[in-house]
Design a protein around this nucleic acid. Structure first.
Length: 473
RNA sequence: UCCCCAGUAGCUCAGCAGGCAGAGCAGGUGGCUGUUAACCACCGCGUCCGUGGUUCGAAUCCGCGCUGGGGAGCCA
């Protein structure tokens, strides 16, 4: 949609320009029109400095409004947060902080923000801003985060597109509790106040799908089916976990990227995962420099070196057993013991990434006893072809594996882990008809955002976070 | 779900060996200035999270609850 300013008083046609385009201009465009929200106003004797932001970039455009303007008295009372339209001449700014400014000829007010507008010209705590999630996108920090979120989404699609992957859509509503992992959100059209019953139990044959249904916890199983037809595929969509998790790294609703590659072993899986992380990091560094600089300045002083390190350094790859050996050699540091056969604790992962190697690493070859049924069993019959990518500060950002393509072994593993084979007849069919070796992984999109921005709470990298007890907005 | 910490003005926070509730910012008024989270002066601002209790007296001490944060588990 194109916006045209009402030029009745100026008698000329003028198209609205985004602040980003205006500020990046090499020379004056002359007469311009800008629409946005007032960030701050400073009054001089015969004029006001008004900074306007339209969300197109972090920076504001400074507008000079002087007493000659017909509605100067109104302009002088404009508050932070008010929505305005400005027309005037683009001119070089004598000030140090900006190259361009607008000498206003006309300023129209769409709507003023009363004095109780919660966002002030000062730093607010993330906790407070979370209580006003409907307004926080207007702050510098959250505006920058959500622009980066958009660019990151684009970079992800571009990475896979360049490599010939097919973007697929897997269902949000599923009939199977995939992987038996975590608590599920049930989806129902039944009247919960008075559900139909049969022998004292809820009669799901009367429900919408004729059986219980849930929100997906992963698109992986369906992605495998598409991969076994289209080659390399990926999904990128919302995922739901009803876990009562209260941490800075978990949400009930989050976005996940899940590539699945045929004729690909664990090494190929790790190669792709490393290339993926490096690619999107490089993309954000090259395309979001201005927004990123805010995080480097105010959120994480070490952000830029950290990102450079991710881009340029080859990720360490060590077998799980070696990781256990390293951790076992560390005395008097961990609350939880390290021993072969149990999963690495968060403190262990962070020690490896932050203290021992000081860079991203991949741990592979976990004991099969702690991993799901679909991971390929290694020849030792003790470990599976699983891998985790661990980065400093965040911990696990990617979890993946080569999938078990041998029907008999897969069935055995499912039986061992208590999964009803008949519910997964369609998944097993993929191993019956033309089964091939294949691999994939899952990336937590929000954790990737945390890594790229230095934001330490996952609730601050998504506009409206869903966590236990929080469904406002 | 478990462990720890916190809740005081619109916001950020001080006050807490129990004795009239404070500052900065924001807001208002005036001044000054091509200013940069502008500056100077003055003005107003409170269910001290809720609820029981101890006490002559509780923001301050104790119990319970609610909310938020940090850590853990689960994982992305």
């Amino acid at each position: 949609m194109r916006f045209h300013a009402d030029n009745s008083t100026l008698g000329e046609k003028m198209e609205c320009i985004k602040v980003k385009a205006l500020l990046s201009s090499k020379e004056s465009i002359g007469s311009v029109c800008v629409k946005g929200w007032i960030k701050t106003r400073r009054d001089a004797k015969t004029f006001s400095f008004i900074e306007i932001n339209d969300g197109s970039c972090l920076e504001n455009i400074q507008v000079i409004a002087d007493t000659n303007m017909e509605n100067y008295e109104t302009i002088k009372k404009l508050t932070t947060g008010s929505a305005v339209s400005v027309r005037g001449e683009m001119a070089p700014s004598p000030g140090k902080e900006q190259a361009w400014e607008i000498h206003a000829k006309k300023m129209d007010v769409f709507n003023t923000a009363p004095e109780d507008y919660p966002l002030q010209k000062k730093r607010h705590s993330d906790e407070f801003l979370r209580t006003i999630s409907h307004l926080r996108p207007r702050t510098n920090k959250y505006g920058a985060a959500f622009r980066i979120r958009s660019e990151l989404s684009f970079a992800i699609h571009q990475f896979f597109h360049e490599r010939g992957f097919t973007y697929i859509h897997t269902p949000i509503i599923t009939g199977s509790d995939c992987e038996g992992a975590g608590e599920l959100f049930q989806v129902t059209a039944l009247n919960l106040e008075n559900p139909p019953k049969n022998n004292g139990h809820i009669d799901y044959s009367c429900d919408f799908f004729g059986k219980p249904a849930n929100l997906t916890v992963s698109g992986q199983l369906e992605a495998e089916l598409l991969a076994l037809a289209l080659g390399d595929v990926y999904t990128f969509g919302p995922t739901f976990r009803a876990e009562d998790s209260n941490t800075s790294r978990h949400m009930a609703e989050f976005w996940m990227v899940e590539p699945e590659m045929t004729f690909c072993d664990l090494k190929g899986d790790m190669d792709n995962a490393e290339a993926f992380i490096k690619y999107v990091t490089q993309y954000i560094v090259s395309h979001c420099g201005s927004d990123l600089s805010l995080f480097a300045r105010f959120v994480d002083k070490t952000l830029m070196p950290t990102l450079e390190n991710i881009i340029t350094t080859e990720f360490i790859r060590i077998p799980y057993k070696e990781a256990v050996d390293i951790l076992s050699g560390v005395k008097d540091r961990f609350d939880y013991p390290v021993d072969f056969g149990s999963d690495l604790q968060t403190e262990h992962e962070r020690f490896l990434a932050e203290t021992h190697f000081k860079q991203p690493l991949m741990v592979y070859g976990y004991p099969k006893s702690i991993k799901p049924f679909y991971m390929r069993v290694n020849d030792d019959d003790q470990t599976v072809a699983a891998m985790d990518v661990i980065v400093p500060r965040i911990g696990e950002i990617i979890g993946g594996s080569q999938r078990e393509e041998r029907l008999d072994i897969l069935e055995q593993r499912m039986t061992e882990t208590g999964i009803n084979l008949s519910d997964y007849w369609w998944y097993l069919d993929s191993r019956k008809y033309g089964s091939v070796y294949h691999s994939g992984y899952g990336v937590g999109f929000e954790r990737l955002m945390m890594m790229l921005t230095g934001i330490s709470n996952i609730r601050d990298v998504i506009p409206f976070p869903r966590t236990p007890g929080n469904i406002e907005f």
